[in-house]
Amino acid sequence: MSALVQTVEAQPLLSVQGLTKHFPARNGRIVHAVEDVSFDVQRGSTVGLVGESGSGKTTAGRALLRLVEPTGGKALFDGVDLFSLSSRDMRAYRQKLQIVFQDPFSSLNPRMRVAAIIGEALDARGFPRGKKRAERVAELLTLVGLSPDHASRYPHEFSGGQRQRIGIARALAVEPQFIVADEPVSALDVSVQAQVLNLFGDLQRKLGLTLLFIAHDLSVVEYLCDEVVVMYLGRVMERGPSRLVYAAPRHPYTKALLATAPVPDPTRRRSHIPLHGDIPSPIDPPSGCVFRTRCPEAIAACAETVPPVEPVGGGHHVACIRHNEKMSDWSLK
């Protein structure tokens, strides 16, 4: 294989570079929702974007699709910067880029039958009406584990998990390459969460999808994601292959998130790493490292400089000025 072919194959489907999103607030102040976020998503892989409520992960996901307009940065999709496209040109990319929303109750029009909900997406593709459309709707419903007979029903006739499957079917109707799944299981019961997560995994294998999976719980995406990006107050704290981030987290915030995640084995426990206080306001974020006000390992230098996201080996990156020092033992006990 030539070096040129190898280089092309190694290019990520999506490369996010310095994504920034600010919102105006009262008295001329600024909400720093997302600050200088960078990561890559390889073709056919799943990247988990994880953090507490208020970390900026949902805003980042929506900014990538330009559902909210980014303030700065680049999002190279197959080499094309989505942020530089006109509104008309961006519409042409909507077929390639889709989103599954968090709330399956409010993301579906209650006045429309399932066939019409999915049919709206098919209209965007110029899909013909009639028998072929009905067959395509039935095919999509079957693909997400529902019955073709469900096409004639309204959203209120379904459970939360079934509604989320309808939302997934709608996203798949345009045959996208890339899907942002914005906390798609957070509103569901635990048993239903597992079913929907398994569905995403099955669909990725069958259709070759590329996923950005947004969640607030690291344990939810542990087995689904190839890579993990941990955000706090709009910034990336740590990112890298899942096997490294879960086995040997380097940032104190990642350790704290993992320590609070449930462990299915009752004989094993993670040591507790306390997180005191609440996440600060994005209108007035702390100086230096934004996590320092809650960090159990913060030192005076943490208030002076915003730590860059630096490599620590094996594709693992961390934004912590102490990442080269020996960290406290976080391992399972």
Rank of each mutant, 00 (worst) to 15 (best):
V137N: 07
D40H: 04
W330G: 03
L13I: 15
R239W: 02
V31N: 13
V37M: 02
R243S: 06
V34K: 02
R243V: 12
C295K: 06
R66Q: 12
T20W: 01
C295L: 10
L97S: 06
P296T: 09
I30Y: 11
G54M: 05
P184A: 06
G44H: 07
P311E: 12
R269Y: 01
A301D: 08
R62A: 03
S87P: 03
H323T: 12
V47I: 10
P70Q: 04
E183W: 14
R94C: 08
L258K: 10
D78Y: 01
L4R: 13
R268D: 00
P266W: 00
L49Y: 02
Q17M: 07
R43L: 07
P176Q: 01
Y154Q: 00
E9Q: 14
A215W: 15
D329T: 11
F200M: 10
H276F: 07
D182Y: 00
R62D: 00
G48I: 06
L258N: 11
G48C: 09
L258H: 06
L332S: 11
A60I: 09
F127Y: 12
L257I: 09
K255A: 15
A256V: 08
V196G: 01
C320D: 00
R129P: 04
L82D: 01
V312I: 14
F83D: 01
G119S: 09
M90V: 08
S53N: 06
V236D: 09
F158D: 01
L65P: 05
A247W: 06
L122A: 09
D103N: 15
A300M: 04
I168Y: 02
R113I: 08
S2L: 11
S191R: 13
T59H: 03
V236N: 12
A169L: 02
P285V: 01
A259N: 10
S106D: 03
G201P: 13
V16P: 09
L203G: 09
R26Q: 09
N324D: 13
G54C: 04
Q177C: 03
A92G: 04
C289I: 07
P252H: 11
L197C: 13
A171D: 10
L49I: 08
R91L: 12
P249Y: 07
T293C: 04
R26G: 14
F23H: 10
K131C: 06
D81W: 02
Q204H: 08
A300T: 08
T20L: 08
Q195I: 15
A75F: 15
H316W: 05
L212C: 06
L212A: 07
S287I: 07
S331A: 13
P307C: 15
M327K: 05
L85V: 11
G277Q: 04
P249K: 00
G201W: 14
C289T: 12
F101M: 15
V220Q: 05
T210H: 08
R62E: 13
E69R: 13
